[in-house]
């Protein structure tokens, strides 16, 4: 039904997302790419730590914790149709 482009921190818990862009610096970007956070990949936002803490996502079947500052730079497409 509704598709939205958002940044990772603004998504709901449990939402299925597709990575669009990572607007981070060279090192962080390469690190994320190595771990599978690349455009087109499906991720699920698993949790967000309290007090505006980091975000946990499931990517390629494993959990990855990403600091909030970095998560804010990950642009995703949320697919609410399901």
């Amino acid at each position: 039904m509704e598709s939205l482009i958002k940044c990772l921190i603004d998504c709901l818990i449990g939402e299925k997302l597709k990575v669009l862009r990572v607007n981070a610096g060279y090192h962080a970007k390469r690190r994320l790419a190595n771990l599978g956070i690349i455009p087109g990949v499906q991720i699920i936002k698993k949790k967000a730590a309290p007090f505006r803490g980091p975000i946990e996502v499931i990517v390629k079947g494993t959990s990855l914790v990403i600091g909030r500052g970095l998560a804010a730079r990950i642009v995703v497409l949320s697919d609410n149709s399901k």
């Binding site: 962080a28 959990s63 990403i66 600091g67 909030r68 970095l70």
Partner: peptide, 10 residues
């Protein structure tokens, strides 16, 4: 300060 990127295992 760099940002956290860390794998969490079951």
């Amino acid at each position: 300060c760099t940002e956290l990127i860390m794998e969490v295992h079951q």
